[in-house]
Simulated assay, not measured.
Amino acid sequence: MDRSFYRFVLSFRGGAKNDLKSVFAESMFNDQSFPREEKAFDVLSRYVEEKADLEITSVIFDELYKLYEERFL
């Protein structure tokens, strides 16, 4: 399947407020400049580290990207 990281992470929206993956997904959804069609780790990681909201943390990004790789890459 040809799915971007953004579309994958949207599946975590709507979870509990203490679920860090859900918080990440909600913040990513609200970030209008998030690279929505991107699949590459380096580009996404750089964005998270340099430009993203504080709730879009690199630790959670790494966890989510690992899941994304296992399922789609």
Rank of each mutant, 00 (worst) to 15 (best):
E50C: 09
E26L: 13
L54R: 12
Y65F: 15
S58K: 10
D42I: 04
K66P: 07
E49F: 11
R46E: 15
K66H: 14
S58C: 04
E55N: 14
K51Q: 13
E37S: 14
F29W: 07
E26C: 07
E49I: 08
Q32F: 14
K39A: 10
L20H: 12
D53C: 02
N30V: 01
K21I: 01
D53T: 06
R46P: 06
Q32K: 05
L44K: 07
V43P: 04
L54M: 06
K39I: 06
Y65P: 08
V23N: 11
R36K: 15
V48P: 10
L54I: 07
E38F: 03
M28H: 04
P35C: 02
L64C: 01
S27G: 09
K39R: 13
E37H: 14
D62T: 09
K66D: 15
E63F: 02
P35E: 01
A25Y: 01
E50Q: 15
S22L: 00
A40L: 09
L54P: 03
V48C: 10
F41V: 02
D42N: 14
D53E: 11
E49V: 09
E37Q: 14
E26T: 05
D42S: 14
L54Q: 14
R36I: 00
M28I: 02
A25M: 04
E63Q: 12
L44N: 02
S27A: 14
Q32W: 10
T57F: 05
M28K: 04
T57M: 09
D53N: 11
I60K: 03
N30W: 01
V23W: 08
I60P: 09
S45C: 10
E50K: 15
K39S: 09
F41Y: 15
E38D: 09
T57N: 08
K51R: 11
E38I: 01
K21Q: 12
D62I: 00
N30H: 10
K51G: 02
S58G: 10
I60N: 08
F41Q: 12
R36E: 13
D31E: 10
S58Q: 14
S45E: 13
A52D: 07
E37C: 09
F34G: 05
E26K: 11
F41S: 11
A52Q: 02
R36N: 10
I56T: 15
L44S: 04
Q32M: 11
P35Y: 07
F29E: 13
K51V: 08
L54S: 09
L54C: 02
L44Y: 02
R36P: 11
L20P: 12
R36G: 12
K39V: 11
F24E: 05
L44D: 02
S58H: 08
L64Y: 04
S22M: 01
M28S: 04
A25P: 00
V43A: 10
E26A: 12
K39L: 08
Y65N: 04
E37A: 11
R36V: 00
S22I: 00
F41I: 01
K51C: 05
E38M: 10
A40R: 10
R36L: 08
T57W: 05
K51P: 01
F29H: 10
Y47D: 08
E37R: 13
A52P: 06
P35H: 01
Y47C: 00
R36H: 07
K51W: 06
F29G: 04
F34P: 11
